[in-house]
Design a binder for these strands. Structure first.
Lengths: 108, 108
DNA sequence: AATATATATGAATATATATTCATATGGAGA
DNA sequence: TCTCCATATGAATATATATTCATATATATT
């Protein structure tokens, strides 16, 4: 131990392991360009898999895999209309998180 | 194209590739448990490498590697006092980002 | 019923990266 | 100067994961 006072202050403010795990997992979602593009596009409107794939110029499979991750993380939900699945955002924090990120990089 | 109207709305709101790249890189920092713990501990006080390693119960090498990433991302800075390097946060957004993350997972 | 279409998903591959180990650097004290 | 000590860093390894490819499912259309 080099600086006991500072160590103790920091120790007191430590987050528990579960919180760290969950928050890091949340930000893992935003750390992938494809998922970030999907989430950002869903800020403006609901979209189907096909159109997201066109919009991002990627395969449907790839988009579908990422949407599954977003569903599992409870960030998006799907509304089925016949064979079309319209995806939309569940969570209010998504917009805030993207905005703070953009704000941050614009200040560099 | 399945739903032209929605497609066009989303197309208009697309972020440019650079922004997506930079924001996803920013959140990649927060997606690792070790870096998240380091950043969170630095919210309360500056800390040296040795004490961070003790606090997180990890090797100095590992912490040092992660601190380099945080330095390169301009999120932390080091103040040298003799052979001791005291690290502190550069950026205001770090606190907001951690808080929104914690808020989000607490609401699930 | 048969076919086409939109989406979902399992497995494989390729790539990224966190940690470890070995070693280097640079300051403090004997 | 020699040697501890705190930190930094390069290389190797192990692990995680994004995309691709093949295939499955489910609805719509003929």
């Amino acid at each position: 131990m080099i600086d006991i006072e500072k160590y103790k202050i920091a120790e007191k403010h430590m987050l528990d392991e579960d919180t760290i795990f969950n928050v890091s997992n949340l930000y893992k979602v935003f750390s992938d360009e494809t998922r970030l593009k999907i989430l950002n596009s869903l800020l403006s409107t609901e979209l189907c898999v096909y159109d997201i794939a066109e919009l991002l110029n990627m395969t449907h499979s790839s988009i579908s895999h990422q949407l599954k991750i977003l569903r599992d993380m409870k960030l998006v939900k799907a509304r089925k209309d016949g064979k079309i699945a319209y995806y939309s955002l569940i969570d209010d924090h998504i917009e805030k998180i993207i905005k703070i990120g953009v704000e941050h990089i614009n200040e560099l």
